[in-house]
């Protein structure tokens, strides 16, 4: 009975996701087509004859009905074919996405690890004695950091790391793909990741810290914490084993939101660092009016955000069955 209910809940969630995905992909498609400007003119130049423009439009299927175009595009994507760029001759959208995804993946994984590595110990220390010096200081500074835009952080990091300290391979455009073939290549890749990872980590750190701190302050009032303390457990053990564990649901939810927003939200950082990730290519495709690339990347971004949200939700349900039973 319970299992059937849970399966039904998952089914409902999945269909909601499918509707959102359909809507988002149709939305990007329409926005990309309705904005002024003709891609044929943009690619062929103003001097192109009507004949060549007509041929071009026919070749890329731009002369068909919008709904027909959308249907063609969707069915091709479901077969794994994202089409080819209409600005860069012969470059497939699939190849752009294939090179972009590892960049985002590395950025997100490294920045989240860094953010969590600082957020957990600091939240533990702050929540032990709420409203005392460390808690207030960390709370105020996390608030101020929350208000600093990423592009301001990145300029100051660039100034400090790659200009003042003059550390190589850290400036804009120094990105090198991840490869483990030689130590030099790996370290160069990590150096080029330094500034963007730290910038993104600072942003994520604030949300992890604030969520964990308020959760921990609540948990530390619970009877089982008093119980564990009165049994004579060390403070360290109480904090890590008993107090932190109930916060895991909120933590997973925050991670889901953070990762989801970084998939597309990192575009400013990627643009300023000239890193060929999804965000960078998305902005480029917008300014170049490259519809297939724009649609393909927007679709991948939407799918990843939906998947990450779904995954975070599923993990939270596994961690705390009360959520699916509707008691929380």
């Amino acid at each position: 009975m319970l299992k059937a209910l849970r399966l039904r809940a998952i089914g409902i969630r999945l269909s909601v996701m499918a509707v959102i995905l359909g809507f988002v992909s149709f939305g990007t498609f329409i926005v990309a087509r309705l904005v002024p400007g003709d891609p044929a003119v943009a690619v062929l130049g103003v001097g192109a004859t009507p004949e060549t423009i007509r041929k071009y439009r026919h070749e890329f299927g731009l002369d068909k009905n919008l709904l027909v175009q959308f249907w063609d595009w969707l069915t091709h994507i479901l077969r794994g074919d994202f089409g080819t760029s209409i600005v860069h001759q012969g470059v497939t959208v699939g190849s752009i996405i294939k090179t972009a995804v590892p960049v985002d993946f590395e950025l997100i994984v490294l920045s989240q690890i860094l953010a969590v590595a600082f957020a957990i110990p600091m939240a533990l220390k702050a929540s032990r004695r709420p409203n005392r010096l460390f808690d207030r200081l960390s709370n105020v500074s996390s608030f101020v950091i929350w208000s600093i835009p990423s592009y301001v952080i990145i300029i100051f990091l660039l100034e400090l790391v790659s200009v003042q300290w003059n550390i190589g391979h850290t400036g804009p455009g120094s990105y090198l793909g991840l490869s483990f073939s030689s130590w030099q290549q790996t370290s160069q890749n990590l150096m080029s990741m330094l500034i963007p990872v730290v910038t993104l980590a600072i942003g994520s750190f604030v949300s992890y810290f604030r969520v964990l701190r308020s959760e921990l302050i609540g948990t530390l009032q619970e009877d089982f914490v008093t119980m564990a303390r009165s049994k004579g457990m060390t403070t360290r053990r109480v904090m890590w084993r008993h107090a932190l564990r109930p916060s895991s649901v909120a933590f997973v939810m925050t991670a889901g939101i953070n990762i989801g927003s970084l998939v597309a939200g990192g575009f400013v950082v990627q643009f300023m660092m000239q890193m060929p990730g999804l965000g960078y290519n998305l902005v480029n495709s917008i300014t170049e009016q490259d519809y297939p690339v724009l649609q393909g990347i927007a679709f991948v971004v939407a799918v990843s955000i939906v998947l990450v949200t779904f995954l975070a939700d599923a993990i939270a349900r596994l961690l705390d069955p009360r959520i699916s039973n509707g008691r929380r």
Partner: peptide, 19 residues
Amino acid sequence: TLILAFPAALAVIAILSFW
């Protein structure tokens, strides 16, 4: 709610860059 699922900043960029 559906519109909120759409990254607003990207839509703003798209419209501005064509306008």
